[in-house]
Simulated scan of single mutants.
Amino acid sequence: MLVIRLLRPVARAVDWTPLAAAGVLVVLLVSLIGTGSALDPEISLMLLRMAGVLLGTAAGFAVVDAMDASTAAAPAPRGLRHRIRCALGGLTAAAFWAVACAVAVARLPQGGTFPVPGAAVEAAACVAAGLLAASVAGRVHQGKAAALAGTGGLLGVVAVSLALRGPYRPWIYPDEDTWGVVHRGWLAALALLLLALDLTGRGPRRTR
């Protein structure tokens, strides 16, 4: 199967340094902040939200494909390479986030609870948004410039969303009545981001 044959060469072509650095950083933050004491659930949620955004920006580097800049015949379709890169970057980011989440849950005070499903959907949407931003930037930019442009785009969207107010703002807390409704919105956003991510990988790269 072509996908299986491409996994190793595509994985070797990915620049793993930003994602590995971000992953280690988020795990260390959750592990070391307030060492020796229980971790407040609200602080845990804040840290894991930061982790989702940071991993999303780093995951964008996984979609940078040097072959996009070439006019020579590629050994595999651009769309297939794009999907493999997104899968590798997204799953690696998810693994780091899951480790950080496990550490945070283990450090909760006795009787403390953490909204793992809701926080996981938020993180998944952030990672998908990071991959999409870098993919869109990669249509017109080459190399790491695309990933950096994507990082700027994702951080801009996050900054705007943090400024929103009201009961249906994206970054609410579990004790608020609209938590369920807002996170159904996160799920819908995640589905749209994944669809857009797949569509972005199709067709030839644009050149300036």
Rank of each mutant, 00 (worst) to 15 (best):
S44P: 04
L108V: 14
E122F: 09
A87V: 09
A129T: 07
G34K: 09
A13S: 12
F96Q: 00
A66Y: 00
A20M: 15
V99M: 01
L29S: 02
L131T: 02
V64D: 03
D68E: 11
G79H: 04
W16Q: 14
L197T: 08
L32V: 11
P167L: 09
L55D: 06
A145W: 09
E122L: 08
L199F: 05
L155G: 13
L32S: 13
G153E: 15
V99T: 02
I43T: 12
M50K: 00
G150P: 06
M46G: 13
W179I: 08
A163H: 08
A120Q: 03
L197A: 01
S44I: 01
R85T: 02
L154G: 01
A11R: 11
V121T: 01
G185K: 06
L187S: 00
D65M: 09
A124W: 06
C126T: 00
L192C: 13
S31W: 14
D68Y: 00
A62W: 04
A102M: 09
A147N: 13
G130Q: 08
G152T: 13
V116Q: 03
A59T: 08
V158S: 10
M1A: 12
W179K: 13
T92S: 14
V116N: 01
G111Y: 12
W97T: 05
R139P: 03
T17K: 14
I172V: 13
V99K: 03
R205P: 00
Q110D: 15
L6C: 05
C86T: 11
L29P: 00
I84D: 14
L28Y: 02
S161L: 15
L164P: 02
A59L: 03
A93V: 07
V27D: 06
A147W: 08
L25W: 04
W171E: 03
T178Y: 07
L80K: 07
W179G: 00
R165T: 14
G130D: 04
L199N: 10
R202N: 02
A98V: 12
R184M: 11
R107G: 04
A163Y: 05
C101Y: 02
L199Y: 01
G118I: 00
V3T: 09
V64S: 10
I172Q: 06
H183I: 10
V160A: 15
G156L: 15
T200N: 05
R78Y: 00
G56Y: 02
T92H: 01
F114K: 13
A134E: 05
A129N: 09
L28T: 06
P41T: 08
R12W: 10
A102R: 03
M67L: 14
G201K: 01
I84M: 09
T200P: 08
G201M: 04
Q110L: 15
L48T: 02
P174A: 14
V53D: 05
R78S: 02
A11K: 12
W171H: 13
R205I: 01
G130R: 09
S44D: 08
A66P: 12
R49M: 05
R5H: 03
L39W: 07
R205C: 07
R139H: 11
L80T: 15
S37W: 10
L25A: 11
